[in-house]
Every structure is written in structure tokens, then in C-alpha cells.
């Protein structure tokens, strides 16, 4: 299988008033065509920063280094800002955790989709519109033609999230990085989106990095999973393996916090991982002299 994304030893350091925060500390990512890599881990462990670093969307003051960062044959570390901008949305696209980070509040849905398309493809406007409407339809948005004319604030949370998914899929990218892509969706729509993504993987060999705290969703879509903790990968493997035989104590703790159908407060206890200021701040402490 051809490797689509290959990242080795990714490090991200964020300057803060309390000193540099080592948000990502030596993470590797390998994703082949048609494959989904799931990433799980607690809030603040560095999942979003990892994806933004790969997409090169972090502000300049944040330092990003890696021994290797490749998209197919392309060495991403050697590319300038312009060239990266050409790749984004065309060969690699991101579905953001919060839709309003990606959507422009003052432009209609249709305008944003067609502009993204026309930026990368020289086609008549009519074709751009048809493509956009087709994708809105495929992500399960009712009345896609009419939704082209609305602004993001006129959409419900779940509809907005689907507009963003449509935007990411628009130019048929090789790689999608999806950061909590289905959190705002009800389970029936969620199932539809997961089917759509799985279909694209089979049909077009789409490679995907799928970040989610919903282990049910990850277990359904991912082939392999990496567990992150404090900026590092601490556990990983084929999805069934990891869920049935978690090695790292953190993975076991994570799994015990998943609410399951049939549990009731007062009768069943939903375990939460015990926390101390220590564990959370190791990232900052270790980098200070």
C-alpha cells in the first residue's frame, strides 16, 4: 500500500508567559491510501495541535519541527507558504473541531464552497455550483440547493458541521484530517457520514486521520488507533486489539470512562481518570531548566 502521510518525530513548542509548552513531543504518523488512523486521548493532550502542525495552520510564533513530513511524494518541510496554501483544500483538507473556525460568517455557504473549488479548479461557475450542491446532498443536508444561499449562522450546529465536511471533500483530496468531525451530529446522521467517508476510502483510496473522543465512533471507522497523552503517543495498534487488550494503564482508564447504554447515575458509576496538577503540567515543567 502506498503511504499517503508520513510524519516522524513531530515536535511543537508553544511560547507562553509561563515558558515554552511542549504541546507535541515526538509524534509519528503513518497513513496509507484507503486507511484510517484514529487518534484518541484526553482533552489538551495535543491532538488538534498535531493536526494543525501537519496542515501548517499554526501561527508563526509556534515552533514546529519534524524529522520527516511527507504527503505522498511531496516533502512538506521544503514547501513555502504559497505552495502549502495550494495543497490545502486540494490534496489535503481538514475538518475542524469547531465549524465556525473554518466557515466565514459573512459569506453564504454556496459562495464559500464555490470559491474553494474555483481556487483549485478552472471550471465554469455552473460546474462549481453543481459540485457544491452534490456534496451538500451527499453529506445529508436536506434541500441542498436552497442551503447554498444561507449564511452559517442560519444553520444548526450539525448542519454547519456537515457544510464543513462537504468543503473538505470538495476537491477530492488524498488526505483528510478530521478533528472531532461528528461531535455535533445525531447518531443517524453520524452513521451516514461515517458510511460516506468509508465509501470514499474504498472508491478513491482516501487516507484519513480521524481524531475523536468518541471511542464508539473510532472503533467503527479506524483501522489503527494511536492513544496520545501529554503530547506523546503512549499506546497504539489495530483497533480491536487496543479496545480488547489495552496495554497502557491510561488506555484502560480511558475506556472505563466511556458511558455505555443501560448505565444510570446513582446506580452505576462512570469512572473518571484521577488527575493532579502534576500530570497535566509535566509538559511545561520538563521543558523548563
Amino acid at each position: 500500500m502506498t503511504t499517503v502521510l508520513s510524519v516522524r518525530n513531530l515536535e511543537v513548542s508553544i511560547p507562553t508567559h509561563a515558558g515554552p509548552l511542549a504541546a507535541v513531543r515526538g509524534v509519528d504518523l503513518q497513513v496509507a491510501a484507503g486507511e484510517t488512523l484514529g487518534i484518541v486521548g484526553e482533552s489538551g493532550c495535543g491532538k488538534s495541535v498535531t493536526s494543525m502542525a501537519v496542515m501548517r495552520l499554526l501561527p508563526e510564533r509556534i515552533s514546529v519541527t519534524a524529522d520527516e513530513m511527507r504527503l505522498g511524494e511531496t516533502d512538506l518541510t521544503g514547501l513555502g507558504e504559497r505552495q502549502m496554501a495550494d495543497l490545502r483544500g486540494e490534496r489535503m483538507a481538514m475538518i475542524f473541531q469547531e465549524p465556525m473556525t473554518a466557515l466565514n460568517p459573512v459569506l453564504t455557504v454556496g459562495r464559500q464552497l464555490t470559491e474553494t473549488w474555483l481556487r483549485h479548479r478552472r471550471t465554469p461557475m455552473k460546474e462549481a455550483r453543481e459540485r457544491a450542491i452534490d456534496l451538500l446532498d451527499r453529506v445529508g443536508i436536506p434541500h441542498p440547493r436552497e442551503r447554498m444561499d444561507v449564511y452559517p449562522h442560519q444553520l444548526s450546529g450539525g448542519l454547519r458541521q456537515r457544510v464543513m465536511i462537504a468543503m473538505a471533500l470538495l476537491c477530492d483530496p488524498e488526505l483528510i484530517i478530521a478533528d472531532e468531525p461528528t461531535t455535533a451530529l445525531d447518531v443517524t446522521v453520524q452513521a451516514q457520514i461515517l458510511d460516506l467517508l468509508a465509501g470514499l476510502q474504498q472508491e478513491r483510496g482516501l487516507a484519513m486521520v480521524f481524531i475523536s473522543h468518541d471511542i464508539g465512533v473510532v472503533s467503527r471507522i479506524a483501522h489503527r488507533v494511536q492513544v496520545m497523552y501529554g503530547g506523546r503517543t503512549v499506546d497504539g495498534g489495530p483497533v480491536d486489539d487496543l479496545l480488547r487488550h489495552p496495554r497502557h494503564p491510561y488506555t484502560r482508564a480511558l475506556l472505563s470512562s466511556v458511558p455505555r447504554r443501560g448505565m444510570r447515575w446513582g446506580r452505576d458509576t462512570l469512572g473518571a481518570i484521577r488527575w493532579s496538577e502534576d500530570t497535566d503540567d509535566t509538559a511545561t515543567r520538563e521543558t523548563r531548566p
Binding site: 469547531e98 466511556v258 458511558p259
Partner: peptide, 10 residues
């Protein structure tokens, strides 16, 4: 919905 399972439990 934006929280990891452990914080969610908490």
C-alpha cells in the same frame, strides 16, 4: 460533546 470521555465523566 467536545470533551474527552474522562472529562465528560467528571
Amino acid at each position: 460533546s467536545a470533551l474527552d470521555v474522562s472529562v465528560q465523566a467528571e
